[in-house]
């Protein structure tokens, strides 16, 4: 009810000028882009933001040469198992983390440059039937994997040379974990969403499962993107890939939900609905959250951007004759938005 009362009125139309085109990058070798991202890279005493593109069999690192011009620095070829996604690792440098697999993630690898051997390398971090993975601050990686009998949730501490220093097992919930998000400002707190549409909270230091809180039946298959604690409440940004359009609130792509971890009760704080469009079935496909900004690819082939705290769509990149948008990712540090097409074209926007 609270959420419904606070449901925002959609603006007359999103302001496209809030996204400013900066540059284009074209991966000519890539016939089917699967992911794009950014990584901090230090070379010759200079630390800069570089772009990483991934197609099924290769991951490429791009450096800015001149304004609007990108050059491929290196390509890691991963021919045995297809690349599924790039896993952002906050506050790392010279390190790219990727998930590989067929239908689901089978292994996680680190791609890195070794100054000792002056060569680009890759190393295996984890194998299994991996359902969800997240990179955390301080060189940590958490993943959930399933066997026929049980679910394993594990945190791996990564070393700068691409190895694993330490492993901590976290108590698994009964339901399969579908996504993780670190609780900003609380180094030892982690949240996850489950296949049963609950939000769970862990203590990363002890591995304890602290709380399981149901999200509600209105928005099934919620995926957590971001979490922070304020005034005793746990605020979680969720996306709803399976939400149905309703008359009262449209089709919610993202919601901010406040949980009271003491009681397990929750209240919707803000909806971010799909922007007005033609009256045909439109859905959220996949998205990314940075700070208070959400971006998502829609089934129409457009990318929409929202101010999640105001529940307002602030920009739309329509699909154009060159092709539908397939990927939308925020650059590290809020440096802008990357929008990618399957043909390997990536556009960078300032937001």
């Amino acid at each position: 009810d609270v959420a419904e009362q606070l449901s925002p009125v959609l603006p007359a139309g999103p302001r496209e000028e809030s996204l400013q085109f900066v540059s284009e990058l074209k991966d000519a070798w890539c016939s089917c882009a699967v992911d794009v991202g950014t990584v901090w890279w230090a070379a010759a005493g200079c630390r800069e933001l570089r772009v990483v593109t991934a197609c099924e069999s290769a991951v490429s690192l791009w450096e800015p040469l001149a304004p609007g011009c990108w050059a491929r620095v290196y390509t890691w070829h991963l021919r045995e198992i297809p690349v599924i996604q790039i896993i952002p690792l906050p506050d790392t440098c010279n390190l790219v983390c990727v998930a590989l697999g067929e239908l689901e993630i089978g292994e996680i690898r680190l791609l890195l440059y070794s100054s000792e051997t002056d060569s680009f390398e890759h190393s295996l971090v984890k194998t299994g039937n991996i359902k969800a993975v997240v990179g955390l601050k301080d060189w940590r990686l958490v993943s959930s994997s399933r066997t026929m009998q049980e679910q394993q949730v594990e945190m791996v501490s990564l070393s700068e040379t691409g190895g694993s220093k330490d492993r901590q097992t976290l108590m698994p919930p009964e339901e399969t974990v579908t996504a993780f998000a670190e609780v900003e400002g609380m180094r030892e707190a982690l949240v996850g969403t489950t296949a049963g549409n609950s939000v769970v909270v862990w203590n990363l230091k002890t591995g304890q499962l602290l709380r399981k809180m149901h999200v509600g039946y209105s928005y099934p298959a919620s995926i957590c993107h971001r979490a922070y604690s304020d005034s005793g409440l746990l605020f979680v940004v969720l996306s709803h890939p399976h939400a149905k359009e309703s008359e009262s609130c449209g089709s919610p792509a993202f919601r901010v939900v406040a949980f009271n971890p003491r009681t397990g009760r929750s209240a919707g704080v803000m909806f971010s609905c799909l922007p007005p469009g033609p009256p045909c079935p439109r859905r959220y496909l996949e998205g990314d959250v940075w700070d208070t900004a959400g971006a998502a690819v829609l089934t129409s082939g457009a990318v929409a951007v929202w101010d999640l705290l105001r529940g307002r769509c602030t920009a739309v990149l329509p699909p154009d004759p060159a092709g539908h948008w397939a990927l939308a990712r925020w650059a590290a540090g809020g440096a802008g938005l990357l929008a990618g097409r399957r043909n390997g074209t990536v556009h960078l926007y300032r937001y």
Binding site: V2, T206, R211, S229, P261, R262
Partner: peptide, 23 residues
């Protein structure tokens, strides 16, 4: 969100739940 909707709120929820949860 009011306290009546969400129940009693604690600023130290993480420490309290860690002390109460099974190890």
């Amino acid at each position: 969100c009011s306290e009546s909707d969400l129940g009693p709120i604690s600023l130290n929820w993480f420490e309290e739940l860690s002390a109460e949860a099974p190890p």
